[in-house]
Each structure stands twice: as structure tokens, then as C-alpha cells.
């Protein structure tokens, strides 16, 4: 059995779901039970040897804390999606692809590459939004010119 306590007697399926979520953060966690080791190594701390089980709820708080302490780069995914949906530009798709890499790289201990991907995602999001705004202003200018000249489209 993997050493994950359900934390308040949740259903077995809920525990399985939480463990699956942890596997995405810590790919090397094994159901046979090395969760304290892996969590400790990822956060750069030594968990006490007596700690055979780590509560999932505690781990999610630890994840949140270390993201703030180690300054995990913002992945910009929400804004990348918004810019793609609103501005309809290929740049938005580039931003989404970069944004999708950030968290995975971060938890694979590739911090420098994660920061680079985050910067790229940020840049392409702004390029996408900027291009969209530019075209909107161009369109308004164009229509304003046409209407003020009294042409009928």
C-alpha cells in the first residue's frame, strides 16, 4: 500500500484521485511507498525518518508553500488561452504551448528551463494581445475614414 493517509476518512476513490494528482507533481512516487523521500527531495528538506505517511492535504499545502518560497514562475496559461480565444492569433497558440511546459519542467527539477518557458509564454501572450489590439484600432481607423468620406460599403 502506498503511504498516503486519506485525511479524515475519505472514500478509497478520493484517496486514489489524490494520489494520482501527486503522481503528476512527483512522477517518481511509487505506490510501494517512497512518498516522504520524494517529497523531501523535491522541497529540499529532510523529513523525519519516523514519518512513514504523509497526508495528502499536508502535501498540497507544502506544494503551495514551496511554489511561493522558491518563486515558481507564473505559467500565464489563463491569459494565453484568453488571448487565443479573443484575438484569434497563432501567437496565442505558441503562448499556450510554452505555458503548458512551465509546471512540468519546474517539477522535473529543470528550474532554469521552466523560467525560460514562462518568459516565452508571457512574451507571446503580450504579442498576441498587442497584435489583436493593433488590428482593432486599424479597423476602427479604416471604418472611420470610410464613413467620414461618405462612402457606402
Amino acid at each position: 500500500m502506498f503511504p498516503v493517509a486519506s485525511g479524515g476518512g475519505g472514500a478509497a476513490s478520493a484517496v486514489a484521485l489524490e494520489f494520482a494528482a501527486l503522481r503528476l507533481y512527483f512522477p517518481s512516487v511509487h505506490p510501494k511507498g517512497n512518498l516522504p523521500d520524494v517529497v523531501g527531495r523535491t522541497f529540499g528538506i529532510t523529513l523525519p525518518a519516523c514519518l512513514k505517511t504523509v497526508e495528502v492535504r499536508t502535501v498540497s499545502i507544502l506544494i503551495e508553500m514551496q511554489e511561493i518560497i522558491n518563486e515558481k514562475p507564473d505559467n500565464f496559461l489563463p491569459w494565453a488561452i484568453v488571448s487565443t480565444v479573443l484575438c484569434c492569433l497563432p501567437f496565442g497558440i505558441v503562448a499556450i504551448v510554452y505555458a503548458s511546459k512551465v509546471d512540468t519542467l519546474w517539477y522535473a527539477q529543470k528550474q532554469a528551463e521552466a523560467v525560460h518557458a514562462a518568459k516565452q509564454a508571457r512574451t507571446w501572450t503580450f504579442v498576441s494581445i498587442g497584435t489583436g489590439l493593433f488590428f482593432v484600432l486599424m479597423y476602427l481607423f479604416f471604418m472611420g475614414t470610410v464613413l467620414s468620406l461618405g462612402l457606402n460599403m
Partner: peptide, 14 residues
């Protein structure tokens, strides 16, 4: 936080 890895999973986003 627990739902984050599923929603932001690279496979889902791609």
C-alpha cells in the same frame, strides 16, 4: 491545488 495538475497537465493543454 489538487485539481491543478489535472487541468494544467501538458497532455490536456496540448
Amino acid at each position: 491545488v489538487r485539481w491543478r495538475p489535472f487541468v494544467l497537465h501538458p497532455c490536456v493543454v496540448r
